[in-house]
Simulated assay, not measured.
Amino acid sequence: MKTRTLHEIHTEGMDALLKALGPVDMIRFLQMFDEGKGDYTKERKTWLKKDVHEISREIRDMKKKQLI
């Protein structure tokens, strides 16, 4: 039995996943093992400029304007 390199094992594994799952589900499967990076709890404050109450208030205001 020939010992395969890590590259060969990786390539055969990826080929097997592609054959068994198809390209889309193969990517979805591989994404399950990605831990991501950063700290979502701290960083979301920079992404979300408004809090839930402010967004809710804006939705109510928009609904009122559409009813007039």
Rank of each mutant, 00 (worst) to 15 (best):
M1E: 02
K2Y: 05
T3H: 03
T3P: 00
R4D: 03
R4W: 10
R4S: 05
T5N: 02
T5Y: 01
T5K: 02
L6T: 02
L6I: 03
H7A: 12
H7V: 07
I9E: 13
I9T: 08
I9G: 01
H10A: 15
H10D: 06
H10W: 07
E12K: 12
G13N: 14
G13C: 12
G13S: 12
G13M: 12
D15E: 15
A16P: 00
A16C: 04
A16E: 13
A16K: 09
L17P: 02
L18A: 08
L18C: 05
L18T: 11
L18N: 12
K19N: 11
K19G: 03
A20T: 07
L21Y: 09
L21Q: 03
G22L: 03
G22H: 06
P23K: 08
P23Y: 00
V24Q: 11
V24C: 01
D25K: 15
D25Q: 13
D25W: 03
M26L: 02
M26R: 10
I27M: 11
I27R: 08
I27Q: 06
R28C: 02
F29V: 00
L30T: 10
Q31G: 01
M32W: 03
M32S: 05
F33D: 00
F33P: 00
D34W: 05
D34T: 01
E35D: 06
E35M: 03
E35K: 09
G36E: 01
K37S: 13
G38W: 07
G38L: 08
D39F: 08
D39P: 01
Y40S: 07
Y40P: 01
T41N: 09
T41I: 10
K42L: 06
K42N: 06
K42A: 14
K42H: 05
E43W: 08
E43T: 11
E43G: 04
R44L: 08
R44D: 04
R44W: 05
K45M: 13
K45Y: 14
K45R: 14
T46E: 14
T46D: 13
T46K: 13
W47G: 01
W47K: 15
W47F: 12
L48E: 14
L48N: 14
K49N: 06
K50G: 00
K50A: 09
D51S: 09
V52T: 12
V52N: 02
V52L: 09
H53N: 14
E54R: 08
E54W: 02
E54C: 00
I55H: 00
I55W: 00
R57M: 05
R57D: 08
E58P: 00
E58C: 01
I59Q: 06
I59D: 04
I59T: 05
R60F: 10
D61L: 10
D61K: 12
M62I: 10
M62W: 11
K63F: 11
K64R: 15
K64T: 07
K64G: 02
K64P: 00
K65G: 06
K65N: 12
K65W: 13
K65C: 04
Q66A: 15
L67V: 11
L67Y: 03
L67K: 14
L67N: 07
I68E: 15
I68F: 11
I68M: 13
